[in-house]
Simulated assay, not measured.
Amino acid sequence: MASPPWMPGDGGAADKRYAPATQRNRDAIAAVLAEWLPGAGTVLEVASGSGEHVVHFAATFPALRWQPSDPDPAGLISIAAWCNEAGLPNIAPPLALDTVAPDWPIARADAILCINMVHISPWAATLGLFAGAARLLPAGAPLILYGPYIEPDVPTADSNIGFDASLQMRDPAWGLRNTDDVKAAAAKAGLAFTARRAMSANNLMLLFHRT
């Protein structure tokens, strides 16, 4: 039986966590990743959460080496459980990685993927993500974000407004970020915004490249 739906910080006894949105969005995300990821190398997934995404992507892109990570001990246990069950040779053991840390437990990556972290973490986590990406990525390598955002020139869906309110009730430091703020912070860190892709359920994929 699947574990109940899980969000970062939730406790519970089950090793494998289950994030229902993963089943709904993984194929759509993979279709965009096929365009945006390099053909070979290491993809660092920051904030891998339950671990369901990285298993799906490792199976979809076997030529890439996938490095999951998360700052949450419960997340790391779940990632390891999903990866061990999958038994795929191109997934490395998960790393304990907090984006705000000045040093990350990995020296280099050919791409970085971060799904649904920016809104479920303090703003400092996003700034840390950009700083870390600037340290790890070679020139021209991609940083890819997925999740809900607020766009200044696009009406915000009622569902996203409600979601934003619920996040801030859970933690005032959480919430949907303005894409202009995200782009400005990325640029300051040395990451150029290069593409936006509208996704289902009022989500976006944002592509940056290391300058």
Rank of each mutant, 00 (worst) to 15 (best):
M1G: 15
S3Y: 10
W6R: 04
M7R: 15
P8V: 03
G9Q: 00
A13V: 13
A14W: 09
D15N: 13
R17T: 03
R17K: 11
R17V: 06
Y18Q: 11
Y18I: 09
Q23I: 14
R24H: 11
N25V: 00
D27L: 12
D27T: 14
D27H: 13
A28I: 12
A28F: 13
I29M: 06
I29P: 02
I29N: 03
A30C: 08
A30F: 08
P38M: 06
P38H: 04
G39L: 10
A40G: 13
G41M: 08
G41C: 05
T42G: 11
V43L: 02
L44N: 04
L44G: 03
L44E: 01
A47T: 04
S48F: 02
G49L: 04
S50W: 01
G51H: 09
G51W: 07
H53C: 09
V54H: 02
P62D: 06
L64N: 06
R65H: 14
P68Y: 01
P68N: 04
P71L: 14
P73E: 15
G75V: 08
L76Y: 00
L76H: 03
I77L: 14
I79P: 03
A80G: 10
W82L: 07
N84M: 15
A86R: 11
G87H: 09
N90A: 11
I91A: 08
A96M: 13
L97M: 05
L97Y: 02
P102V: 08
W104H: 06
D110T: 03
A111Q: 08
A111W: 01
I112Q: 00
I120F: 09
S121G: 05
P122E: 04
P122M: 08
L127T: 10
F130R: 05
F130V: 02
A131C: 13
G132C: 08
A133G: 01
A134H: 07
R135N: 10
L137K: 02
A139L: 11
A139K: 13
G140P: 08
G140R: 09
P142D: 07
L143A: 02
L143P: 01
L145K: 10
Y146Q: 10
Y146T: 02
G147H: 00
Y149K: 07
Y149D: 05
Y149S: 00
E151G: 09
P152E: 05
S159F: 02
N160R: 03
G162A: 09
G162K: 12
F163N: 00
D164H: 07
D164C: 03
A165L: 10
A165E: 11
A165D: 08
Q168P: 06
A173N: 12
R177C: 05
T179L: 06
D180C: 00
V182E: 06
K183D: 14
K183H: 15
A192V: 13
F193T: 00
A195V: 09
R196A: 14
R197Q: 15
S200V: 13
A201S: 12
A201Q: 09
A201E: 09
A201W: 06
N202K: 00
N202W: 07
M205V: 06
